[in-house]
Computed example of a mutant assay.
Amino acid sequence: MRIVDVAEFYAPNGGGVRTYIDRKFIAAAEAGHELFVIAPGPKDGFEARPGGGVIWVRSPGLPFDSNYWMFVHAGPVHAHLDRLKPDLVEASSPWRGAWIVASWAGFAAKAMFWHADPVASYPQRWLAPHVDPDRIDQLFAGFWSHLRRLATYFDSSVAGSVWLGRRLRDLDMGPLATIPLGADCSAFSPALRDDALHAGLVSDLGLPPDGKVLLGVGRFHPQKRWPMIAAAVAAANRPEQPIGLLILGDGMDRARVARAARRYPNVQLMTPTRDRSYLAKLFASVDGLVHGSESETFGLVIAEALASGLPVVLPDRGACSELAPPSVREIYRSADVGSATAAILRLFARDPVALRAASLQAATEVRSDSQHYVELFDLYDRLIRDRHAESATAV
């Protein structure tokens, strides 16, 4: 089948969406499918990929994040869809790109993949912890009604986690398939642990040899709450248990994140990299991963950390906490520095031998992204067949 993904937030310096789609190119080619991505960019162009490629549509930049661009006119996207004649069109954001797909009149099945929860990402984050999240959903009832209307133009929505699927179902978002994402288990493994790398990281953070290294990975965006995480790790650093934090990422919030890191001698920013082999070794060589965003719809870095044999410290809201078994996780109250500090202290107060054994076991239980893509393409095949069956019946 030929799939076209109208991906509003696919960008050269993108985060989890880019990682997910890059892996999807490989999975589609291996399964014998064609995949094309239509994405907004600084100029028109084509970038070949296995089994297809990325079609860049010249678009204006996103005003508040220079790493991304935004669709404005439907015409160029519709022209590419008319030329490609896809079997299925996927919209991977609930914003302008999805409405462009919804308004395309071509014959194809349509699916909306929910890579984001706009209400959890913005108003719930802005007002946390002062206003109950359910109350915020009620206040944004008109916006959810708008998204329900958008969903009627698609044969199915797709949720990438059980948490998001439950949330979309509770919000009556129409036909829905829950297909949890997974990690690249062929790349991330506890076997990649490098004790020399760990010792170097400990030294770079100015910690004594018995120091523990926490890793934070993600875009530099207010949604990720890096200043809060930095403050929590700094507060958890004790003479009897030295703890430091490395933050790996980049983005619109870099200046604020850098200022926060400079306040604490045991917190450092790492040079951004897309070297997946180094990332896999880094994941396996630290002592744990800490995450700040409570609006994740899956949490790819959490899955990669678990596949690397790491315990994790996670907020109590969003999809992340459901990824990790209690044996390797500590949960804190979202957006609460003191609660996050306490969770970090609890993690390193555990018996280290038992925690390592639990982490190695958890690594064997991580869902692979290969399984996700198999189930996703099976769904898309069914949607295509249903669309053709409906057309035949109508004739």
Rank of each mutant, 00 (worst) to 15 (best):
V4H: 03
A7G: 09
Y20C: 07
D22W: 01
D22V: 03
A31M: 14
A31H: 13
A39M: 03
P40M: 10
P42S: 15
G45C: 10
F46N: 07
G53D: 02
W56I: 08
G61S: 15
P63H: 13
Y68K: 10
W69C: 14
A74M: 09
L84F: 06
K85V: 12
E90F: 04
S92V: 04
R96I: 15
G97F: 04
A102E: 03
S103P: 02
A109D: 02
H115R: 04
A120N: 08
Y122Q: 12
Y122W: 12
P129C: 07
P133C: 09
P133E: 07
Q138A: 08
L139S: 08
R148S: 06
R148D: 04
T152V: 11
Y153Q: 14
Y153G: 11
D155Y: 05
A159I: 05
W163F: 10
R167N: 06
R169N: 13
D170K: 13
L171I: 06
L171T: 03
A177H: 12
L181M: 14
P190K: 04
A191T: 13
D195A: 14
L197C: 09
A199M: 05
S203T: 13
S203G: 09
D204Y: 11
D204K: 14
L205T: 03
G206E: 11
R219A: 15
P227C: 11
A230W: 00
V233E: 03
A236P: 07
L245S: 10
I247K: 04
M252E: 15
D253H: 15
A255F: 08
R256M: 14
A260S: 15
R274G: 13
A280N: 01
L282C: 06
D287V: 06
V290Q: 01
G299R: 00
V301Q: 03
E304M: 06
G318H: 00
C320K: 02
E322C: 02
P326M: 05
P326C: 03
Y332H: 06
R333G: 06
R333I: 07
R346Q: 09
A349Y: 01
D351P: 04
R356V: 10
E365N: 13
R367M: 05
V374W: 06
D378L: 13
L383A: 06
R385Y: 07
H388D: 10
S391M: 09
S391F: 08
S391E: 12
S391Y: 08
V395K: 09
